[in-house]
């Protein structure tokens, strides 16, 4: 089971109540992982509104997750 390091920003940080966490997941892709976390933390934003970065680069939602990946879910923000 891959172990991944997660970082949350903005609305997701608030909803998760934390800035980062490490999880062991059965999810094969970032999309599956987000669904798993959304159920756990009550994330309200749909995947279509987010971007995901894996290891410091924006990524597709269906790339395979590997052990040790650093995953960042990024909601858009607009404040100024």
């Amino acid at each position: 089971m891959p172990r991944v390091r997660l970082q949350y920003f903005a609305l997701l940080r608030e909803e998760a109540g934390r800035q980062s966490e490490t999880v062991d997941t059965a999810a094969a892709t970032p999309a599956d992982l987000y669904a798993e976390l959304a159920a756990r933390h009550g994330f309200r934003l749909p995947v279509a509104q987010l971007r995901v970065a894996v290891n410091a680069a924006f990524s597709d939602w269906d790339r395979p997750l590997r052990d040790g990946d650093e995953v960042v879910f990024i909601p858009p923000v607009a404040g100024g």
Partner: peptide, 13 residues
């Protein structure tokens, strides 16, 4: 970077 569907109101200002 942001899907066309990104709309104001979904995220806080």
């Amino acid at each position: 970077q942001w899907p066309e569907a990104t709309r104001d109101g979904l995220v806080g200002n």
